[in-house]
Amino acid sequence: MKIILLFLAAYLLGSIPSGVWIGKLFFKKDIRDFGSGNTGTTNTFRVLGKKAGIVVMAMDILKGTLATSLPMIFHETTLNPLWFGVAAILGHTFSIFVGFKGGKAVATSAGMLLAYQPLFFLYSTAIFVVALFVTSMVSLSSMIAAVLITLSTIFLSAIAPVILPTHDWLLTIIAVAVTAFIFYRHKENIQRIKDGTENKVPFGLNKQK
Protein backbone atom coordinates (compact mmCIF):
# COMPACT_ATOMS: atom_id res chain seq x y z
CA MET A 1 0.00 0.00 0.00
CA LYS A 2 2.83 2.39 0.86
CA ILE A 3 4.49 1.87 -2.51
CA ILE A 4 1.19 2.42 -4.33
CA LEU A 5 0.60 5.68 -2.46
CA LEU A 6 4.13 6.87 -3.25
CA PHE A 7 3.69 6.05 -6.92
CA LEU A 8 0.40 7.95 -6.92
CA ALA A 9 2.07 10.91 -5.21
CA ALA A 10 4.91 10.84 -7.76
CA TYR A 11 2.43 10.80 -10.65
CA LEU A 12 0.42 13.67 -9.15
CA LEU A 13 3.59 15.71 -8.59
CA GLY A 14 4.53 15.17 -12.21
CA SER A 15 1.00 16.04 -13.30
CA ILE A 16 1.17 19.59 -11.95
CA PRO A 17 0.79 21.66 -15.16
CA SER A 18 3.19 24.41 -14.15
CA GLY A 19 2.99 26.36 -17.41
CA VAL A 20 -0.80 26.27 -17.55
CA TRP A 21 -1.24 27.34 -13.93
CA ILE A 22 1.37 30.11 -14.08
CA GLY A 23 -0.12 31.42 -17.31
CA LYS A 24 -3.67 31.49 -16.01
CA LEU A 25 -2.81 32.84 -12.57
CA PHE A 26 -0.39 35.62 -13.48
CA PHE A 27 -0.95 36.34 -17.18
CA LYS A 28 -4.60 35.40 -17.71
CA LYS A 29 -3.48 33.21 -20.61
CA ASP A 30 -3.79 29.52 -21.31
CA ILE A 31 -0.51 28.67 -23.02
CA ARG A 32 -2.23 25.76 -24.74
CA ASP A 33 -3.95 28.35 -26.94
CA PHE A 34 -0.69 29.86 -28.16
CA GLY A 35 2.58 28.85 -29.76
CA SER A 36 2.96 25.09 -30.05
CA GLY A 37 0.06 24.49 -27.67
CA ASN A 38 2.42 22.52 -25.44
CA THR A 39 2.21 22.92 -21.65
CA GLY A 40 5.94 22.67 -21.00
CA THR A 41 8.91 24.97 -20.47
CA THR A 42 9.72 25.84 -24.08
CA ASN A 43 6.23 27.03 -24.94
CA THR A 44 6.09 28.97 -21.68
CA PHE A 45 9.24 30.87 -22.66
CA ARG A 46 7.74 31.52 -26.08
CA VAL A 47 4.30 32.65 -24.88
CA LEU A 48 4.85 34.16 -21.42
CA GLY A 49 8.45 35.32 -21.56
CA LYS A 50 11.78 34.67 -19.89
CA LYS A 51 10.81 35.12 -16.22
CA ALA A 52 7.78 32.83 -16.45
CA GLY A 53 9.80 30.35 -18.48
CA ILE A 54 12.53 30.15 -15.85
CA VAL A 55 9.96 29.66 -13.07
CA VAL A 56 8.16 26.90 -14.99
CA MET A 57 11.45 25.21 -15.89
CA ALA A 58 12.46 25.21 -12.22
CA MET A 59 9.07 23.82 -11.21
CA ASP A 60 9.17 21.09 -13.85
CA ILE A 61 12.67 20.04 -12.78
CA LEU A 62 11.61 20.13 -9.13
CA LYS A 63 8.66 17.82 -9.88
CA GLY A 64 11.03 15.13 -11.07
CA THR A 65 13.42 15.71 -8.19
CA LEU A 66 10.76 15.52 -5.49
CA ALA A 67 9.08 12.48 -7.03
CA THR A 68 12.37 10.58 -7.29
CA SER A 69 13.19 11.54 -3.71
CA LEU A 70 9.91 10.23 -2.27
CA PRO A 71 11.16 6.70 -1.44
CA MET A 72 14.19 8.21 0.30
CA ILE A 73 12.07 10.69 2.23
CA PHE A 74 9.67 7.98 3.38
CA HIS A 75 12.32 5.27 3.83
CA GLU A 76 10.98 2.97 1.15
CA THR A 77 13.81 0.75 -0.08
CA THR A 78 11.89 -1.91 -2.00
CA LEU A 79 12.18 -0.24 -5.40
CA ASN A 80 14.81 1.90 -7.09
CA PRO A 81 13.95 5.64 -6.84
CA LEU A 82 14.16 5.92 -10.63
CA TRP A 83 10.80 4.19 -10.95
CA PHE A 84 9.16 7.04 -9.04
CA GLY A 85 10.88 9.48 -11.37
CA VAL A 86 9.33 7.60 -14.28
CA ALA A 87 5.91 8.03 -12.64
CA ALA A 88 6.52 11.80 -12.52
CA ILE A 89 7.55 11.81 -16.19
CA LEU A 90 4.32 10.04 -17.10
CA GLY A 91 2.39 12.52 -14.98
CA HIS A 92 4.07 15.46 -16.68
CA THR A 93 3.30 14.07 -20.13
CA PHE A 94 -0.19 12.75 -19.35
CA SER A 95 -1.41 15.13 -16.67
CA ILE A 96 -4.68 14.28 -14.97
CA PHE A 97 -5.23 18.02 -14.44
CA VAL A 98 -5.31 18.94 -18.15
CA GLY A 99 -7.08 16.04 -19.84
CA PHE A 100 -4.11 13.66 -19.78
CA LYS A 101 -2.03 15.90 -21.99
CA GLY A 102 1.16 17.69 -21.08
CA GLY A 103 4.77 18.50 -21.88
CA LYS A 104 7.57 16.59 -23.54
CA ALA A 105 9.26 15.25 -20.40
CA VAL A 106 12.68 16.88 -20.82
CA ALA A 107 12.79 19.10 -17.71
CA THR A 108 11.11 16.52 -15.47
CA SER A 109 13.54 13.86 -16.68
CA ALA A 110 16.37 16.22 -15.74
CA GLY A 111 14.84 16.56 -12.29
CA MET A 112 14.86 12.78 -11.93
CA LEU A 113 18.59 12.78 -12.67
CA LEU A 114 19.19 15.59 -10.17
CA ALA A 115 17.72 13.52 -7.35
CA TYR A 116 19.29 10.24 -8.42
CA GLN A 117 22.82 11.34 -9.36
CA PRO A 118 23.58 15.10 -9.06
CA LEU A 119 26.99 14.91 -10.78
CA PHE A 120 25.46 13.17 -13.76
CA PHE A 121 22.74 15.82 -13.81
CA LEU A 122 25.42 18.53 -14.11
CA TYR A 123 27.18 16.56 -16.84
CA SER A 124 23.88 16.11 -18.71
CA THR A 125 23.03 19.79 -18.36
CA ALA A 126 26.40 20.70 -19.88
CA ILE A 127 25.64 18.44 -22.87
CA PHE A 128 22.28 20.14 -23.41
CA VAL A 129 23.74 23.66 -23.11
CA VAL A 130 26.47 22.91 -25.65
CA ALA A 131 23.94 21.34 -28.03
CA LEU A 132 21.65 24.37 -27.64
CA PHE A 133 24.52 26.77 -28.37
CA VAL A 134 25.43 24.85 -31.53
CA THR A 135 21.89 24.31 -32.87
CA SER A 136 19.92 27.21 -31.34
CA MET A 137 16.92 24.84 -31.26
CA VAL A 138 15.55 23.53 -27.97
CA SER A 139 13.85 20.57 -29.62
CA LEU A 140 16.93 19.37 -31.51
CA SER A 141 19.14 19.99 -28.48
CA SER A 142 16.80 17.92 -26.31
CA MET A 143 16.96 14.98 -28.71
CA ILE A 144 20.73 15.21 -29.18
CA ALA A 145 21.26 15.45 -25.43
CA ALA A 146 18.95 12.49 -24.78
CA VAL A 147 20.94 10.27 -27.16
CA LEU A 148 24.33 11.37 -25.81
CA ILE A 149 23.19 11.03 -22.20
CA THR A 150 21.95 7.50 -22.87
CA LEU A 151 25.28 6.53 -24.43
CA SER A 152 27.09 8.20 -21.55
CA THR A 153 25.33 6.05 -18.96
CA ILE A 154 27.16 3.09 -20.45
CA PHE A 155 30.60 4.65 -20.80
CA LEU A 156 30.65 6.67 -17.58
CA SER A 157 29.61 3.72 -15.45
CA ALA A 158 32.77 2.00 -16.67
CA ILE A 159 35.31 4.85 -16.73
CA ALA A 160 34.00 7.42 -14.24
CA PRO A 161 32.16 5.74 -11.34
CA VAL A 162 32.45 8.98 -9.33
CA ILE A 163 30.00 10.57 -11.79
CA LEU A 164 27.89 7.49 -12.35
CA PRO A 165 27.78 4.29 -10.25
CA THR A 166 29.33 1.31 -11.97
CA HIS A 167 26.97 -0.84 -14.05
CA ASP A 168 23.88 1.27 -13.36
CA TRP A 169 21.95 -0.62 -16.00
CA LEU A 170 18.52 0.43 -14.74
CA LEU A 171 19.40 4.05 -15.47
CA THR A 172 20.58 3.02 -18.93
CA ILE A 173 17.36 1.10 -19.64
CA ILE A 174 15.21 3.99 -18.46
CA ALA A 175 17.35 6.45 -20.41
CA VAL A 176 16.78 4.42 -23.60
CA ALA A 177 13.02 4.38 -22.98
CA VAL A 178 12.88 8.10 -22.14
CA THR A 179 14.95 8.94 -25.23
CA ALA A 180 12.57 7.01 -27.47
CA PHE A 181 9.65 8.74 -25.77
CA ILE A 182 11.25 12.18 -26.22
CA PHE A 183 11.74 11.50 -29.92
CA TYR A 184 8.11 10.42 -30.20
CA ARG A 185 6.90 13.54 -28.42
CA HIS A 186 9.04 15.67 -30.77
CA LYS A 187 7.76 14.11 -34.00
CA GLU A 188 6.18 17.40 -35.13
CA ASN A 189 9.40 19.25 -34.29
CA ILE A 190 11.37 16.72 -36.33
CA GLN A 191 9.20 17.47 -39.35
CA ARG A 192 9.69 21.23 -38.86
CA ILE A 193 13.45 20.72 -38.56
CA LYS A 194 13.39 18.85 -41.88
CA ASP A 195 11.33 21.65 -43.43
CA GLY A 196 13.60 24.34 -42.01
CA THR A 197 10.75 25.99 -40.09
CA GLU A 198 11.57 24.98 -36.50
CA ASN A 199 11.65 27.82 -33.95
CA LYS A 200 15.10 28.97 -32.84
CA VAL A 201 16.27 30.72 -29.71
CA PRO A 202 17.87 34.19 -30.05
CA PHE A 203 21.41 33.02 -29.25
CA GLY A 204 23.95 30.45 -30.32
CA LEU A 205 25.68 29.64 -33.59
CA ASN A 206 22.44 29.16 -35.50
CA LYS A 207 20.31 31.79 -33.76
CA GLN A 208 17.15 33.30 -35.16
CA LYS A 209 18.00 36.27 -37.35
Rank of each mutant, 00 (worst) to 15 (best):
K29V: 03
V130H: 08
I4Y: 06
A110D: 11
V138I: 08
W83P: 05
A58C: 08
K63T: 15
T44W: 07
V138C: 11
V20W: 13
S141W: 01
A67K: 02
L48G: 08
I16L: 01
P165A: 01
F181M: 08
F183M: 07
S142K: 10
L140R: 04
A177Y: 14
A58S: 12
V98A: 01
S15E: 11
I89R: 03
I173P: 05
N80Y: 11
G99L: 01
T108K: 05
A110R: 12
H167N: 12
L170T: 15
R185W: 07
I127L: 15
T150Y: 07
G111P: 06
F155I: 10
N199K: 06
I54R: 10
I190E: 14
V178K: 00
V162K: 10
L6M: 08
I154D: 07
P118I: 03
L132E: 07
P17W: 05
L66G: 02
K51D: 02
F45H: 15
P81V: 10
A58P: 09
K194D: 01
L119N: 08
T166I: 00
F181W: 14
A131Q: 08
A177P: 05
L156V: 05
S136E: 04
A107G: 02
A131L: 04
F203T: 08
K50N: 04
Y184Q: 06
L82R: 10
H186N: 03
S142C: 02
L79Q: 13
L114S: 03
A58Q: 01
L6I: 08
K2P: 00
D168M: 09
R46T: 09
M112F: 07
S152R: 04
I173L: 12
D30E: 01
F45T: 15
I96W: 13
A67I: 13
A105Y: 11
L8E: 14
H92A: 00
I144F: 05
V147Y: 07
A180Y: 11
K104H: 02
I159F: 03
I89F: 01
L114P: 09
S109I: 12
I73C: 04
I54W: 14
K187F: 12
G85L: 05
Q208V: 04
G91V: 06
L5N: 12
S139M: 02
I154A: 06
K200T: 04
Y184S: 05
V147Q: 10
L140I: 06
T179G: 03
T77R: 11
T42I: 03
I3E: 15
G99Y: 10
M59F: 14
L148W: 07
K200H: 10
I163K: 05
A87Q: 13
D60R: 06
G91Q: 13
V201A: 09
L6N: 02
I182M: 06
A145W: 10
V129F: 14
A110I: 12
I182Y: 05
V129R: 15
A105T: 15
N43G: 09
I89N: 00
M112K: 07
T78P: 04
I16H: 01
S109G: 15
R32P: 08
H92Y: 09
